[in-house]
């Protein structure tokens, strides 16, 4: 019995060690293999493929924005960019240095700046939930404009020569102010007799842009189109022109309600940003699709804001990456400064 007990313990010991090792290896292997799922089959909706000939722009530069939640973007002049977000207004030089930091009392929702054609060039108009504040470049508060209505929810500002337009998603109207903050009127009221349904908005995006041709362009997202209002003629209640159509193809606006942001070039062409698949596209003056600035390959999320400069560059506020990304036309000469990113 002694010998047998002896043998027993030896056998038991060895086999126990082996068994422990085997089971541990098996369990570890099983556990490790369980999270090695490679994303082979895409479960997410896939965007359109793009013809390289339609890629009209390339990224020329980008500047990191020191904000948790960048909301809006405007161009002050050739060299300066204004970014609003969190509770602050940041003025950047294009190389990325912060020139000015203006603290705000509440989160801004939109921003615009007077161009050289504006009555007060370089004035900064900041839209909050239901009112507008006007700053100069030194950061001094010039004026606080009364809310058009208490329930206003201002999502976009556009500046023309003598007028300032504010898009109010709550009332589904675009308010027109003069530069002193006097309310002059509004656009977008439905006119049954002319079959104009007004702004049909079922999503939290509403954008306006002023053009040099005396028209104010506003997106009518649910109708998948952009409408031009003649603000010089106060009698004109309905848009004088509209363009755009819904389409799953690149040449139209995708889904239920697009585009989300627009900007108008000096020559009257349009840049649009979409949600869903975050395309930024170029359309001609007449509204024909010309090409693509950026798409899902470049942008992880829909653009938070969009603006264009005199050199036909497109500036996109990429809130996910917390960057302003500057796209330059491919044929332009001005592509030198940030090839180092490659």
């Amino acid at each position: 019995m002694t010998a047998s007990t002896h043998k027993l313990s030896a056998i038991a010991g060895v086999s126990a060690l082996l068994a422990v090792a085997a089971i541990t290896a098996t369990v570890v292997g099983l556990l490790l293999s369980s999270d090695r799922r490679v994303a082979d089959v895409p479960s997410q909706p896939q965007p359109q493929q793009i013809d390289p000939a339609l890629q009209l722009y390339r990224q020329a530069a980008e500047l990191a924005v020191a904000l948790e939640e960048p909301r809006a973007l405007a161009l002050l002049d050739e060299q300066r960019v204004v970014v609003a977000g969190d509770q602050v207004l940041l003025i950047y030089r294009r190389d990325g240095t912060v020139l000015k930091r203006i603290a705000l009392s509440e989160p801004p929702q939109c921003v615009a700046a007077g161009s050289s054609h504006h009555l007060y060039p370089q004035r900064i108009y900041v839209g909050f939930r239901n009112h507008v504040k006007v700053f100069d470049t030194a950061g001094d508060l010039i004026a606080v404009w009364q809310p058009p209505r208490d329930n206003a929810d201002l999502l976009s500002i556009a500046v023309a020569q003598r007028d300032v337009f504010v898009a109010d998603i709550s009332n589904r109207l675009v308010w027109r102010y003069d530069t002193e903050g006097r309310l002059l009127g509004s656009f977008g009221t439905p006119v049954k007799s002319r079959g104009y349904p007004g702004f049909v908005i079922t999503t939290r995006y509403f954008d306006v842009a002023a053009s040099n041709d005396g028209l104010l362009y506003a997106v009518n997202p649910r109708l998948l189109r952009i409408e031009g209002f003649d603000y010089t003629n106060p009698e004109q209640q309905v848009p004088v022109r509209h363009w755009g159509r819904g389409s799953p193809q690149l040449d139209g606006f995708f889904g239920c309600c697009n585009p989300i942001h627009i900007a108008v070039f000096a020559d009257g062409r349009f840049a649009t940003a979409e949600k869903g698949f975050p395309w930024v596209k170029i359309f001609s003056r007449q509204g024909e699709f010309e090409g693509v600035v950026a798409g899902p390959a470049e942008l992880a999320a829909p653009a938070a804001d969009l603006t264009v400069d005199e050199d036909n560059n497109v500036l996109v506020l990429d809130a996910a990456a917390k960057r302003v990304r500057i796209f330059a036309p491919k044929n332009s000469q001005d592509v030198s400064d940030s090839d180092k990113r490659q």
Binding site: P45, Q46, P47, Q48, T202, T203, R222, L224, G246, P248, F254, G255, C256, C257, G276, F277
Partner: peptide, 13 residues
């Protein structure tokens, strides 16, 4: 949004 073109109902392409 009670959309007509519902991207949750129709395929995206």
């Amino acid at each position: 949004g009670y959309c007509d073109v519902c991207t949750g109902y129709f395929p995206t392409q």
